[in-house]
């Protein structure tokens, strides 16, 4: 009979040793993040979204809502012009926005003004083609390898590298310049715009990250850049297409705040709207409208995130 500790060791969830997909990009990111506090994935995105994401919609003071649940009507603010508009390219003029791939679904629309769209996201088909297309656009042309069923990689001259993962419902791409000098931010932005993904993004010329826009709306998904001596040496971001769109009625921010943060010794002073990815129980990934609250808890600044639609109304699939 197997010993207790042999049995325990056999249950190790990390039986296959972890290997970061791109250690060079990891080191570059760590150096770039040296002066700021980074949080993992979704959490960092939430805070960044509340910190001034373009295209957010300010809907008022939650403090006032706590005594007056009647909401002011949502009013969309214009999106500030990005430094680089990665929305169109000469080669693919139809890639702006997501109009080509959105499939409106009947039966979910209702009267009233407090409606917001949700978007079903799908990983672009043909990971090998996606990898090669991105590689060609970014000047990484070489050996395709490392395919393990969910991840493709392409390694070009001087160690430049593309990886393309499809493990999380939303594809994710990474770029590392290796020992090359990298790309100019303008060329990099143009390359991303050519990918026919379901989003647009305005990229900065400095190290940092920028939210991607879907149908003109800011999301909590971001494209991250590491810029050294004016050249993009590492980057990562999402890859998806929009398969469907559904309109949902927004719930009260006050209700969202109360049900999400039941233990809060917190005062929310503003709320904005952003779109965050969620995997529904049927396995499909949707960008859902989300309230981003800002305020304070004691003397500390506080940011919270909550779904802006009632979960009971989520259909799971768009039919």
């Amino acid at each position: 009979m197997r010993d207790a500790f042999e049995a325990l060791a056999a249950q190790d969830p990390a039986a296959v040793a972890y290997q970061h997909p791109d250690p060079a990009a990891l080191v570059a990111r760590i150096g770039a993040d040296h002066r700021r506090v980074a949080l993992p994935g979704r959490f960092r995105l939430a805070i960044a979204a509340a910190a001034g994401v373009s295209g957010l919609v300010t809907v008022g003071l939650v403090a006032a809502l706590s005594v007056n649940p009647a909401l002011p009507m949502l009013a969309f603010a214009p999106t500030p012009a990005p430094v680089f508009a990665a929305t169109k390219s000469a080669q693919s003029p139809t890639t702006a926005g997501v109009a080509m791939s959105v499939r409106p679904v009947a039966g979910h629309f209702g009267p009233g003004d407090s409606l917001a769209s949700a978007y079903q996201l799908m990983v672009p088909a043909a990971g090998l083609d996606a990898t090669m297309g991105l590689g060609a656009a970014l000047g990484v042309v070489g050996t395709i390898g490392g395919y393990n069923g969910t991840t493709f990689s392409e390694t070009g001259a001087s160690g430049s590298r593309i990886t393309y993962e499809t493990t999380t419902g939303i594809g994710r791409w990474r770029y590392s310049a290796g020992s090359t000098t990298g790309l100019s931010p303008a060329r990099f932005a143009a390359a991303i715009a050519r990918q026919r993904w379901g989003y647009t993004v305005g990229l900065d010329t400095r190290t940092g990250s920028s939210p991607v826009l879907v149908d003109g709306s800011a999301t909590t998904l971001r494209v991250s850049l590491t810029v050294h001596d004016g050249r993009v040496v590492a980057a990562s971001g999402p890859a998806f297409v929009v398969a469907a769109m559904v309109n949902y009625r927004l719930r009260s921010p006050n209700d969202a705040l109360a049900t999400t943060y039941t233990e809060r010794p917190t005062v929310a002073t503003s709320v904005a709207l952003a779109w965050s990815p969620y995997a529904l129980t049927d396995g499909f990934v949707w960008l859902l409208p989300t309230f981003v609250f800002r305020g304070h808890s004691g003397a500390r600044a506080w940011t919270g995130l909550s779904l802006a639609v009632r979960t009971a109304t989520l259909t799971g699939t768009a039919g």
Binding site: L39, P40, R42, F43, G169, A256, T259, T260, Y261, T262, E263, Y278, A279, L280, T281, G283, L288, G304, L305, S306, L307, T311, A312, L314
Partner: peptide, 19 residues
């Protein structure tokens, strides 16, 4: 820290947690 942040949200959002 990350787990605490996730759990603060999960009470309400359990219905949309990936299965």
């Amino acid at each position: 820290n990350a787990q605490r942040s996730r759990r603060r949200r999960s009470a309400y959002e359990g219905a949309v947690t990936p299965r």
